[in-house]
Design a protein around this nucleic acid. Structure first.
Lengths: 241, 241
DNA sequence: CACTGTCAAGAGCACTGCTCTCGGTTTTGT
DNA sequence: ACAAAACCGAGAGCAGTGCTCTTGACAGTG
């Protein structure tokens, strides 16, 4: 458990970190599929075969990068939420937009790592179970925010929305475990907003918006605001309505 | 102009088609980034260098596959819209959901071609201008549907939605050219619904929904319905409201 | 000191995209 | 009808890839 038990352990941890850093650098210039172990080893001044002592295969290195990316994005979202949660009076709509913007900003700052986790999956690469926990950090932030907003009376009842039943009700209920008390109607719409958020970011990053919403700042802001209203997050001034 | 003017032209067209077919087959088993010209040539019983007579580079082959995919998806969407447009009385909400479902079904039937056009862009590959026209066929279908719906009084005025101004108004106005008469508020929401649709499909195909909305049929149906209402498409019974 | 596990190095395999040259065929212009 | 031009597939070859295997050197522990 001790991080630097022996000199060998320390050297190994350090080199592992350096390999991932070089891989990330290469990810930015060459892309995920052209990630080359030999190029990394060249950059690090070592022989290619030595890399296999640290990552048994190219896929294992990819897995490490994917987990790191999920964790970095998750930490960004958590930080944005945290920063906004302490305001008084707390404004869940502001927190919602802050988290969404933080996710977008991270994606724009790290487009290749974003593509690695939210783009088309690398073929022949089977994501191991270890990736699902870091992948769920962003949804957990959003659901936690919703849960607190509900507890404090910030959620509209969505009277006009249809009831959620059947298979969908069961599926929505697994979200409810992370957002106790939030009604199904709201949770379903959170799922819709969730896919909208990442769909929009992917479109922006992957060039699907050029010609229309290309500088996407205003589109993103408007969409985020309207989706927040869609799921029933009230504006600060509108609590008692 | 004549398709089979000479024997050589005919042979060339046929071989071009066979190469793309083999490439598509390999796309399904190996993925876009592992698409190998040598493997294609092996499958076709020819020498690898001969392929370069038909596609000057791997990127050119990819471009052809991308254009074909956009065209196939566009044709699917157009067919779905056409089929629903002729119903009487015409129900634009039904057409909307039909087009969305058709897009999803095509994506599920051709996941690798979908990933090719809506997944992370292949690194080092610069999409030429020739791809934008086939890429716009689906948006054109949706906007045309909205335009007709507006002309026939099927669109709610979206009174509670905020005004669209500034840069966003200009961006939305380029959509307006494809959907004459449709108000900005509606067009902005169409953009939001558009990103939601493809975000949802991508999440389903790329495995981001497992653990929650995994069999996504009901989620998809509910989301499509609610997004249609979001953009103001009225239900058939609610025209006069 | 000796043993055990870890390390970098290097050769080697089968593969990739791509280029170039070669001889043969087809199409085209006159 | 015939020569010139365009096109074609075959093959060799280049520089690069992921990955495996063996070899010899080193550090940590008994």
């Amino acid at each position: 458990m001790n991080a630097g038990r022996t000199a060998r352990d320390r050297a190994r941890a350090e080199l592992t970190h350096e390999i991932k850093a070089a891989a990330r650098r290469q990810l930015a210039t060459e892309g995920a599929e052209r990630l080359s172990l030999r190029a990394i080893s060249r950059e690090l001044g070592m022989v290619s075969s030595a890399l296999y002592r640290y990552f048994p295969s190219r896929d294992d290195l990819l897995t490490a990068l994917i987990i790191d990316a999920y964790d970095a994005l998750g930490a960004t979202a958590e930080a944005a939420a945290q920063e906004s949660e302490n305001d008084y009076p707390w404004d869940p709509l502001a927190t919602w937009t802050a988290v969404c913007s933080a996710v977008r900003d991270w994606a724009r700052a790290n487009p290749h790592e974003y593509a690695l986790i939210y783009g088309s999956p690398v073929t022949g690469y089977k994501a191991p179970q270890t990736t699902v926990e870091p992948a769920s950090r962003v949804p957990i932030v959003l659901l936690g925010l919703l849960s607190r907003a509900h507890a404090e009376g910030w959620l509209s009842p969505l009277r006009s929305a249809p009831e959620v039943d059947g298979v969908l009700a069961d599926q929505v209920d697994v979200l409810a475990e992370l957002a106790p008390g939030v009604p199904r109607k709201t949770l379903l719409r959170v799922g819709i907003a969730w896919t909208q958020l990442f769909g929009m970011i992917s479109f922006e990053l992957f060039g699907q918006l050029v010609g229309t919403m290309d500088p996407a700042d205003e589109f993103f802001a408007a969409a985020t605001r309207q989706m927040a209203e869609f799921i029933g997050l009230r504006r600060l001034a509108a609590v008692g309505e």
